[in-house]
Amino acid sequence: MEESGEQKKRSKGKKDDLFHVLHKVPYGDSPYVKAKHAQLVDKDPEAAVALFWKAINEGDKVESALKDMANVLKQLDRSEEAIEAINSFRSICSKESQESLDNVLIDLYMKCGRTDEQIELIKKRLRLIYQGDAFNGKTTKTARCHGKKLKISIQQETSRLLGKLGWAYMQNKNYMMAEVVQRKAQLLGPDSNRACNLGLCLIKRARFEEAHLVLQDVLQCRIPGSDDDKTRKRAEELVMELKSVLPHPQSMDNFTLDDNFVEELDHLLNAWGPNRSRRLPIFKEISQDQLP
């Protein structure tokens, strides 16, 4: 039996819905929609960038277009251009979007090796958490990871930012600050990859016995994420590196502690009392006498 016009219309509508769901492409014919189509369906990043620029200039979903364009530019190894775009146009974006723009910038700074700017921006985000201004005043936020929606708590976000900060200090070869920050990150949310970073810091500081204990925690699956093959391989490689330097221990410290910022971190992790409901619970402080 031949389908009626109405049946054909419904059938076409279902196919269109399936297409948009599969490709995660929004409905419509605006510059932003065309940009997403170029990015996700046509796999044409250059065309997507041009269309995202058009969307920004025409005021079409500016915040989303700016973030999406920055990510496409990063994939094209044009991260400097993405940084300039965000810094130029973020002033016309809403207050609610500034946090996600900062997160994009943090990764772009890391990609470009602009670690000093990355460090300062992460510090800014941590101070906002301390002031109770992160997540737009809420205790959790919704984020996307591999296409799935996740609830992220302030504690998880703090731990994530501290991990990135520790990595940035490592790139600057400031292993003393990197160790302090990584330890604080581990207090909030133990993570095997950060444990490997901490192990590397300790190796660079010629604290070999401590490094061995930290890496063994990964290899013996005592830390979340230790079952990840890539992380275990990295831990094994660091243990081999540890064995190679044991006969000739040499400290590679060329930096001192940023005492003011360490004190700020201690307040961040330790100063939220029961009468300050917008802030985190009290966490154990790493006292100064635990530092070498």
Rank of each mutant, 00 (worst) to 15 (best):
L187P: 00
Q155N: 05
L108Q: 12
I106W: 02
I119E: 09
G132F: 05
I106F: 06
S159Q: 02
L108H: 05
L161V: 07
T142M: 13
E157H: 10
A168W: 02
S153G: 14
Q118H: 03
Y169A: 11
M110Y: 13
M170V: 02
M110G: 12
R127N: 02
L165N: 09
D133L: 06
K149T: 07
E157P: 00
K138N: 11
L150N: 08
Q155R: 10
Y130M: 07
G147A: 07
G137W: 01
L126R: 01
L187T: 10
E120K: 15
L187D: 01
K148L: 08
A178T: 12
R160S: 08
Q155E: 15
Y169M: 10
T158I: 03
N174L: 06
L165D: 10
K123S: 12
I129D: 03
K111C: 10
L162E: 14
M176A: 14
K149M: 11
Q182W: 00
L188I: 04
K148H: 11
R125P: 00
K149F: 10
V104E: 07
V180L: 04
L162W: 03
E117N: 10
G163W: 00
F135Q: 06
G163Q: 04
T142L: 13
I154L: 15
Q171G: 06
N174Q: 13
T139S: 14
K148Y: 07
L188N: 02
V104Q: 10
L121Q: 04
K141E: 14
R125K: 12
G132P: 03
K151M: 15
Y175P: 04
I119V: 15
